[in-house]
Simulated scan of single mutants.
Amino acid sequence: MERQRMEEENRRIKEYANTQQQREDVAKAEKRAREQALDNVQRTLADQIKRDREEREEQELVRQELYLEEQEQLVRRRERDEMEVRIKQRLELQRERDEQIQFKHLRDGEIKQEEDRFRQQLMAKFAEDDRIEQMNAQKRRIKQMEHKKAVDNLLEQRRRQMTVDKQREVDERIEGERVEQVRKQIIEEERIKLLREHAHRLLGYLPKGVIRDEKDLDYLGNDFKSEFKRRQVNMQHLGGWGN
């Protein structure tokens, strides 16, 4: 009887131990499953974060490449435009020189004709005043030479006065151009001053055209320049333009 009781108790102890072991095994399995699931989620999340980062980096690289390509196109277009302007200026200068030469020839001819008429009128007037037709041949030649010398002096004075008048016109034009250049320089200096004072606070709200070129950005420092270009890249990527 005692033996049976001991065997029964051992059996229950063994069953209890088996049950506990099974529970522990189940708990361990569930823990491993949870850890595996968490690890899977973390790996999936890490992979997604990596893909998102790579996608953003690729998009940023594409934007940078597009921006650089557009800048290169702008440089080439600007160089082409500048070349066209220089060619047009040379052609215009050549045309103006040709016109000036042609005008000078015409003007010289007109001046020569005018001087000839003036000379004839003066000679006729001097002859009439001195009644040269009533003189003998020698006196007539002497008087004609005097008249010619007087006419030449008058014509020379007239030419000098024309030269003085023309030089005055040139000087006035040069002075006008100098004054205009000074005025433009003052306006440009004031524009740069306003940019330096206000551009940093208005970054993102500056109207198109306020920042004209790379030189304007140089006035405003590297931080402003970098942020301005970054915003340009973003706006160009979105199909727009802005500061």
Rank of each mutant, 00 (worst) to 15 (best):
78 R>L: 00
94 Q>S: 03
150 A>V: 15
204 G>W: 10
225 K>L: 05
178 R>K: 15
113 Q>C: 07
96 E>M: 07
9 E>G: 05
186 I>H: 14
204 G>L: 09
116 D>E: 04
34 R>H: 15
203 L>K: 12
220 L>N: 08
111 I>K: 07
223 D>N: 11
235 M>V: 10
182 V>H: 04
48 Q>M: 00
206 L>M: 13
35 E>R: 07
144 Q>L: 09
113 Q>F: 01
61 L>S: 13
72 E>I: 01
174 I>P: 07
63 R>N: 08
32 R>M: 01
102 Q>Y: 07
106 L>H: 06
108 D>T: 12
36 Q>Y: 07
11 R>Y: 05
18 N>V: 04
216 D>T: 12
209 G>T: 08
206 L>P: 03
112 K>N: 00
188 E>H: 09
216 D>K: 12
206 L>K: 10
122 L>D: 00
8 E>I: 10
105 H>T: 13
54 E>T: 01
131 R>I: 07
227 E>W: 04
113 Q>V: 12
144 Q>I: 04
104 K>G: 11
238 L>M: 11
185 Q>T: 14
56 R>P: 05
30 E>Q: 11
100 Q>H: 12
10 N>D: 03
114 E>Y: 02
217 L>N: 03
179 V>Q: 08
138 Q>T: 14
49 I>D: 10
203 L>Q: 15
7 E>R: 15
122 L>V: 02
91 L>V: 03
93 L>Q: 06
105 H>Y: 09
224 F>G: 03
178 R>G: 11
30 E>L: 04
231 R>A: 03
13 I>R: 00
192 I>Y: 11
122 L>Y: 00
134 Q>L: 13
95 R>I: 02
159 R>A: 06
131 R>W: 02
214 E>I: 13
83 M>C: 04
128 E>K: 10
76 R>K: 05
54 E>H: 04
140 R>K: 01
237 H>M: 11
50 K>W: 04
228 F>H: 14
45 L>C: 06
15 E>Y: 15
22 Q>T: 01
165 D>K: 15
58 E>S: 13
87 I>N: 05
21 Q>T: 03
229 K>G: 06
242 G>T: 07
60 E>P: 01
56 R>W: 01
35 E>D: 11
238 L>R: 07
127 A>H: 06
219 Y>D: 13
117 R>K: 00
91 L>W: 00
193 K>W: 06
69 E>Q: 10
54 E>Q: 03
129 D>E: 13
54 E>M: 01
2 E>N: 14
136 N>Q: 02
46 A>C: 05
70 E>F: 09
59 Q>H: 04
46 A>Q: 06
112 K>H: 02
187 I>P: 10
